[in-house]
Design a protein around this nucleic acid. Sequence first.
DNA 1: GTGAAAGCGCTAACAG
DNA 2: CTGTTAGCGCTTTCAC
Lengths: 345, 345
Amino acid sequence: MSKQEANIYEIAKEAGVSIATVSRVMNRSASVSEKSTKKVMDAVRKLNYVPNSTARSLSTSLSRSIGIVVPDINNPFFSKILQGVTAAADEQGLQVVLYSTDEDTERELKVLHTMREHRLRGIIITPVSEHCKETLDLLQDFELRGIPVVLVDREVDDPHFDRVVAQDEDGVYQAVCSMLQAGHKRVAIVTGPLHSRPGKERLRGYERALEDFGIPLRQEYIRQGDFRMERACEETLELCSLEEPPTAIFSSNNMTTYGCLKAFLELGLTVGRDISLFGFDDIDALKWLNYKLSVVSRDAYEMGRRAMGLLADCFDREGFSEVGRRESLPTELILRGSEQWPESL
Amino acid sequence: MSKQEANIYEIAKEAGVSIATVSRVMNRSASVSEKSTKKVMDAVRKLNYVPNSTARSLSTSLSRSIGIVVPDINNPFFSKILQGVTAAADEQGLQVVLYSTDEDTERELKVLHTMREHRLRGIIITPVSEHCKETLDLLQDFELRGIPVVLVDREVDDPHFDRVVAQDEDGVYQAVCSMLQAGHKRVAIVTGPLHSRPGKERLRGYERALEDFGIPLRQEYIRQGDFRMERACEETLELCSLEEPPTAIFSSNNMTTYGCLKAFLELGLTVGRDISLFGFDDIDALKWLNYKLSVVSRDAYEMGRRAMGLLADCFDREGFSEVGRRESLPTELILRGSEQWPESL
DNA sequence: GTGAAAGCGCTAACAG
DNA sequence: CTGTTAGCGCTTTCAC
């Protein structure tokens, strides 16, 4: 019953060499004679030795773990990002420490504080809000301490950080154009929170498309949402009860899309027959159910991978550049027909 | 540009006390005079000091992080568990290190190996397979080293570990009974992998229900799936093309349910009109879309919390008991009508 | 090619 | 109440 962990001294003793030699063998850091190597390896096997990474981190003052902060683990978009990050981190031999903020600024600050104690090598984060001063301070503090930060999807008021985002505006622009081309004149949008880059950019794409088609913006067609189903449902209900309701709606994210669909159900409206709908972010469930919804799609998994890539890059470079790099991934228009002019109109 | 981290010595010097006093103040581990406390706190603020948890871990040989190993981050069931675990861990001041196996035994072994280097305080895992000897060895090795392991949902061939599971058999039994009560005589099941507890138990629930209703089992109605959509779709297609096709199907998990629905779509069958369906695990997307599917539901979030609870419990106790505890959470029958005798039959 | 020894930053006796 | 000191397990000069 050896509840004890063997340490480097025991291996050295067992192998009849010094701890320095053991260390060299374990890290292949310098050449060691074949004879010594074998003796060490035998001892390692015999005592079932595994080096203690905590001690190693302390000694080298270099951690092997990165932190990732997501606002909502359950949203498929973020779990895909998480998947991308963990896959890429694994390839680099890095561990991923997971933190969740539940879209709550208070929790975000708390999380960021505890993260400071744990010597993380770097941080990947989708901040709750883009204008939270305290969050920004904390993130800057990390960089000051030599811990690089990479933003994903959402940004903060500081061009300094590296970031990976999608070309939201462009995607939405094309999506709305496709609706307008289909003959729609009254196109509405349920936006995301306008204090965040994604929310703002998607709205801008919508506005630009309307302008290009010479269609004046109507304030009552621009409903602000919060990327959550409930709110989106309410806004959609109100949209549909306008004197002159829209014939098409653009929904700004996956949860918003569910909200729109829920509202349609309550009103007895069928997409493609009574109204048109275009969503942002593809939804596996709908796809599998063969629900013909056109969407602006992006590769969340790849976004996660890229974020890890940028971070790993920072590790290699000395110092930090004044202005962060910005990886902007393309979006893809997936047309499944729901953008077309509804049959019954 | 203080890219340097302040350490306990600098604080001690700045405050004019010894490092022991600083340590005591930071940990409230012993009483320190008000005067000293204030001096230390001032120094801490001035130098923006944050204790180094790596050094602390090494010194106390007590880690503040636990590892969680999931087979598929993207499956909502596991992301809910993850949510429960992180929430509970957070309350205990513990960090969560995330590992993903992608349902691959090779990756699981690799992950488990790297986990040994990182001094985790405990481990929560849903193993890929229940009979993998190497995985079992590794898990036992953790326990031997004083690192407790808690199993979630799936088990391994060793009663020693603590575990949290759902009462799958019972839930499925009741579900199938409700279909039989509705008048169905030909009820099929698309199972999960039968080398895992969930797969086996759910099949047993199905069998027991049929027996209790005096309906002989028909092998052609028991189709083995793998908890994935594609396979479930194929099996369902075959089921429906039998000479005497079933009038009702029980699907053994959320992905399987998608597979069944996909098959129905291809065949032009509508649930509730042409065939009955009962699923295991509720699906948010379907619920939001007001899709009337009856399901056996369980609280994955709570399962995650319980797992963390059991683990925390192990930390407090000395030594390990011979036989692990087993928390068995109830399932809930959510009847939405899809279990009823189809209209058109 | 190898070993001795000085840290990495902190905790925890042990004296005072 | 406070300071001194010896580790925690490993890496890394610096001699030999």
